[in-house]
Design a protein around this nucleic acid. Structure first.
Lengths: 64, 64
DNA sequence: ACAAAATGTAATATATAGTTGACATAATGA
DNA sequence: TCATTATGTCAACTATATATTACATTTTGT
């Protein structure tokens, strides 16, 4: 399922997928795939993304 | 680094590594490795573990 | 309308998450 | 003390997260 929280938080920081990818040290495609929701990143990458976007794990990655 | 929060939460539910592994559908070695801290589980597994232990991602997996 | 940037999406390759089986030691209870 | 269960750890395997390259489409600014 799509990660719209992450997309919104990234937009709120005015970062492109490319820019976020560079900050957290992964490829643009990885960021794209996570937002698109068709895969399952590692917790360390999630934590990196949270720190880059000033959000918590629960805010960006929790799902019921 | 060791995940003592997870170890404590599991103890609080009186579950063995084996039992938790069965609940979340991974091997006992995987649970052991996560608690021992020498690797990087996927977010979906983290969420499964959180649900099994009635904790949130931030409570069990956030790290400064 | 045009150009540039951002995003979506393949295919192939590599690193590593997670499995399986096995064995050793530590902890627990009868 | 003895048997059982829980935990730690290793080696070899399989599945999948992530990289790289490439190209198409959509968005944005002028």
């Amino acid at each position: 399922m799509k990660n719209l929280n992450m997309k919104a938080a990234r937009a709120g920081k005015d970062l492109s997928q490319q820019q976020l990818a560079e900050i957290v040290g992964v490829s643009r495609q990885t960021i794209n795939a996570i937002e698109k929701g068709d895969y399952n990143p590692t917790i360390r990458l999630c934590i990196q993304i949270c720190k880059a976007l000033d959000r918590t794990l629960d805010e960006l990655f929790w799902e019921e």
